[in-house]
Simulated assay, not measured.
Amino acid sequence: MTNNSLMLSLLIGLLPLTHIAHAKPYQPALHQPVKLNSLAQQKQYIRQIYAEVNNNLGSYQLTNIDNHGHSTEGGVIKFYTDQNQIRLIEEIYYGETGKYSLQYYFANNDLYFVFEQTVRYNAPISFDTPSLGMEAFDIKKSKIAENRYYFYNGSMIQWLDEDKQSVSPNNSRYINKQNQLLRAVENALRQR
């Protein structure tokens, strides 16, 4: 286990639960800790985790924390837990001209996948009629950018950018993004 995954595991295990809500019955996990050598095997495993988490969202315990200090229109951090283990953290930040969200997927207290989405509105949400040479706000005219980050053994193994192109791990942006995401998930965990 790397230092990053050890730190995340410790942070997850030590944080207390607050507000809890239940929905449908729990379905058991389909995975056990596995050593996979190829990128293709690792990504297939991560996709299984992603599907499992999304299929079981209704059975997880949900904790919502308001996070207003980080954006103009407010924000929320949602923690989805299964038997006191984090499965998903979702950060959503609202602004006058867009919305930003991060979803962190976990299995066995290890981070495996991050989905990042930036929505840029065509105009500020307060522009309900054309004004100052700008068109009125129309959610259908928003531009959406998505990035996908795959993690295995505490390190990012692949980054697919908004064009779904793989960013080279030798690129300094890649290392900086990995470190930024690991810090961001640690900060989210501290909010819990």
Results as ranks from 00 to 15, higher is better:
S131D: 14
S71R: 04
F113V: 03
N147P: 14
N109K: 07
G98S: 13
L88R: 07
S142L: 10
F106Y: 09
F151E: 07
Q117E: 02
Q83I: 02
T118N: 04
K99V: 00
I86F: 01
E90W: 15
K143I: 15
F106K: 00
T81L: 08
S126E: 13
G154S: 09
K141I: 01
N108A: 09
Q117S: 01
E91G: 06
L132N: 12
P124Y: 00
S71E: 09
Q85W: 15
L132W: 11
I89Y: 00
S155E: 08
P124K: 03
I92P: 11
Y152Q: 03
Y121M: 01
T97M: 13
Q103W: 06
S155H: 14
I144P: 04
H70G: 14
Y112C: 00
R120L: 10
G74T: 07
E162T: 02
N108V: 03
Y93S: 15
M134E: 14
F127D: 12
E91L: 13
I144T: 13
F115I: 02
N122G: 04
L102M: 08
I77P: 02
E162D: 13
M156T: 10
I89D: 00
Q117A: 01
P130D: 03
L102S: 07
S142I: 07
N109I: 05
G154N: 10
Y105S: 02
T129N: 12
F106D: 02
S142W: 05
A107N: 12
Y93L: 15
K78H: 07
I144A: 01
T81D: 03
Y93A: 15
P124F: 00
L132H: 11
